[in-house]
Amino acid sequence: MIVYVCNSCGKGYFEPRGICKCGSDSFREEERETKRLHCVKLLVPPAGFPEQVEFCLSSAGDTRVLELGGSRE
């Protein structure tokens, strides 16, 4: 899972930002392993997605991320 990490303070973000909370606008991409916290099956997803979507809130180090659910195989 790619996380955007501030080059100044090291804070990680799942969703890219233009400016970090520390004021820096310089980020790098970092590949991190994830650990699932909670998963949800959505049976009425927004138009344009499959009829059933499963997603998970996961942690990637100290950063929370969203990822598709189901088997990791």
């Binding site: 799942f14 909670h38 998963c39 959505l42 927004p46 997605f49 499959p50 979507v53 997603f55 990822e67």
Partner: peptide
Amino acid sequence: RERSVGISVPSLASLMTR
């Protein structure tokens, strides 16, 4: 990026419930 996973506002409520 969050939206690209297929989440909706209602599904966040389910995450909160869990």
